[in-house]
Design a protein around this nucleic acid. Structure first.
Length: 636
DNA sequence: CTAGGGTTAG
């Protein structure tokens, strides 16, 4: 039997008197705008008073509002509300089915599942005709593939809806949610008609799977594109760490005359954060301002994060101050940013303000930020306090990220044995980062025995990560264990790993990136760069600079060590900065590994000698060098 | 009434 679906969309029959219709719509909007169960109960009482509690129209709205507020069965209230309607229509049944959506908590008993409510509906006499919404509600609540297939079968057996665009889109969505992209794709391929939603759903699914090639292929073929599908591509690239592609597709979107909105910009801001350069930061700020986009929590948090990652921590703070609404993301982004810039006191202060004077509750990410702040500043006791505060007060079970912070905190402060004990006491399996933090501590404090333990785990977890081998080799070299050093070298060769070279780079005013490798003379201005370094180091010697030869752990003559130190890539970048930036301007350098002691000393002294602020972003954090001092207070 | 968004460690 087929239904004429057009008939089903007719509005409910008009009530006899206009007065009552006005009352209906008054109550309807009252329900829509109510934000608590108490209010809904009061409205429900009003429905009784006016004899409207049997109205499918109003009760369906009431049920949907209850569902949105999370008042779901097994709470008896929705069923009570429903049961007061003697002959519910299809809309009300659908709302009732929706209210049985399985949520976070109790796996609902079979008798309470949306599907069983649907069977109940079909057993009515005469059965209310199902709507496309009915199947969409069922599909949305499907928890498993078999649920979904069963529901899909129902739509076919009843007929009429098996080729409905809305139902099929929901079906695609169901397959994607249950992780069956291939089934989703099959439905998509067999659909008689597709709209922009069908295309976008699949594009997003592919990009969440990390498959941007398939996503881009689909996007390219899609005959209809709108701001949402374009944004899906931008965010796909940005979430898959392809910021340049994200920006490229955003520019294409603009060129195509598609107006962006705040949601699109969030992904673009994110891409700029990954690039970490000031030019893109100021470009996107202009785009945001010119378009008159409000700094809501999404745009604002993304912006805070971006400024922090571009080394513009003051701008990040300014955005934070400008935001009228702040949530846990905004606070976490600001706290992590301050932590990365070594401004631990401010990070901790902000955390205290947040918990004391706002209703914002910290989450696990917030604590990662607070703990990193402590570890970057060497606040051992404070770090311990926040770690237990997190567990005891906020009932957050520490995850490997939190342990990484704690191991780093203890280990860097010299409590390497305690850090090892902490790792061994973990209830969750330590990951590579946790062991890596411990290994890093062993390098600073030369603990070859513990380094051996850490590296055994880390080589198992991250066999291809070259950095770990190098750190271990440096520990052995510092301890004078030369046999072990050559063993590591053999290991690296045996596993076919290659060093990715240390490099530093700078962005010039026109946005071009200039990259330098240790000891290279590839840059066109290499000759001048060398001259600047020579001149700079010589003048620094006059005010007491002595090369930190211990930064080179390998066995060679002091002259050779000095020559190598001179060629470190951040020194090349510094010299290039001196040559190319305006007098008095900030010199910003980025670096793919950690800065060495000798370069750190040179940066400090140079910042005083040439009266320039120098900001170095190494692989872990920012150093702000100014007037002969570093923001890290020489603790890194 | 189904498609796109922000904070996380070595």
């Amino acid at each position: 039997m087929k239904f004429d679906s057009a008939l089903l969309y007719l509005p409910p029959p008009l009530p006899p008197f206009p007065r009552q219709r006005a009352l209906d719509s008054l109550l309807f909007s009252a329900i829509s705008s109510s934000s608590s169960v108490l209010q809904l109960r009061q409205i429900h009482a009003l429905l009784h008073r006016f004899g409207l509690h049997a109205s499918s129209f109003l009760v369906a709205k009431l049920l949907r509002r209850l569902t949105d507020l999370g008042i779901l069965p097994p709470n008896p209230y929705p069923s009570l509300v429903f049961s007061q309607v003697p002959s519910p229509n299809s809309f009300l049944w659908t709302a009732f089915i929706r209210s049985h959506s399985p949520t976070l908590s109790s796996a609902s008993a079979d008798a309470d599942s949306p599907l069983s409510v649907y069977s109940l509906m079909r057993r009515q006499f005469p059965p209310p005709p199902p709507l496309t919404f009915t199947f969409s509600a069922l599909l949305k609540s499907a928890q498993s593939l078999s649920d979904g297939i069963q529901i899909h079968a129902q739509t076919i057996s009843i007929g009429g809806f098996d080729s409905d665009l809305f139902v099929l889109n929901t079906l695609i969505d169901m397959y994607i949610r249950s992780g069956h992209l291939i089934h989703a794709r099959q439905v998509f391929d067999e659909m008689p008609v597709r709209d922009v939603l069908s295309w976008t759903s699949l594009i997003v699914a592919y990009s969440r799977n990390g498959d941007m090639n398939s996503a881009a292929g689909l996007f390219h073929c899609s005959p209809v594109k709108d701001v949402v599908s374009w944004t899906a591509m931008v965010s796909g690239y940005s979430q898959n760490s392809q910021p340049r592609e994200a920006l490229a597709i955003f520019k294409k979107m603009q060129a195509g005359g598609v107006a962006f909105d705040d949601i699109s910009l969030v992904s673009v801001i994110n891409a700029c954060a990954q690039l970490g350069t000031c030019n893109y930061a100021s470009w996107i700020r202009q785009v945001v301002d010119q378009a008159g986009i409000q700094l809501n929590v999404f745009v604002g948090s993304a912006m805070i994060d971006m400024y922090a990652k571009c080394g513009l921590i003051d701008d990040a703070q300014q955005v934070f101050a400008e935001m009228s609404d702040k949530d846990v993301y905004s606070y976490s982004a600001m706290i992590s940013g301050l932590a990365a810039h070594g401004r631990a006191d401010e990070a901790i202060h902000l955390f205290e303000v947040m918990v004391r004077s706002t209703a914002v509750r910290p989450n696990r990410v917030t604590f990662v930020g607070v703990l990193t702040a402590c570890s970057h500043a060497g606040f051992v006791e404070k770090g311990r306090c926040y770690f237990s505060l997190m567990m005891n007060e906020y009932r957050i079970t520490p995850d490997p990220d939190h342990y990484t912070c704690m191991v780093d905190l203890l280990g860097r402060a010299g409590l390497v044995e305690e850090a090892l004990k902490l790792v061994q006491s973990m209830l969750v399996e330590p990951n590579g980062a946790v062991w890596g933090a411990l290994l890093g501590a062993c390098r600073i404090h030369v603990k070859p025995e513990i380094a051996k333990i850490a590296s055994e785990h880390i080589f198992r977890l991250e066999p291809d990560c070259i950095g770990n081998y190098i750190v271990l080799s440096n520990v052995y070299a510092s301890a004078g264990m030369l046999d072990e050093v050559s063993n590591i070298r053999k290991m690296i060769r045996g596993r076919g790993l290659r060093k990715n070279p240390a490099s530093s780079w700078m962005e010039s005013g026109d946005g071009v990136i200039h990259e330098f490798f240790a000891g290279d003379d590839l840059h066109p201005r290499s000759k001048e760069i060398k001259e600047v370094i020579e001149y700079l180091l010589q003048s620094l010697r006059l005010v007491g600079y002595v090369p930190v030869l211990s930064s080179i752990v390998y066995d060679m003559s002091d002259n050779e060590k000095e020559r190598i130190l001179k060629g470190h890539s951040e020194k090349l970048a510094l010299a290039f900065g001196v040559l190319t930036t305006v007098v008095g301007g900030v010199i910003r350098i980025m670096k793919n590994i950690r800065i060495c002691e000798d370069c750190h000393l040179v940066m400090k002294m140079a910042s005083g000698a040439i009266e320039r602020e120098i900001i170095v972003r190494d692989s872990l954090r920012f150093h702000h060098f100014k007037s002969g001092l570093c923001s890290c207070r020489d603790f890194w």
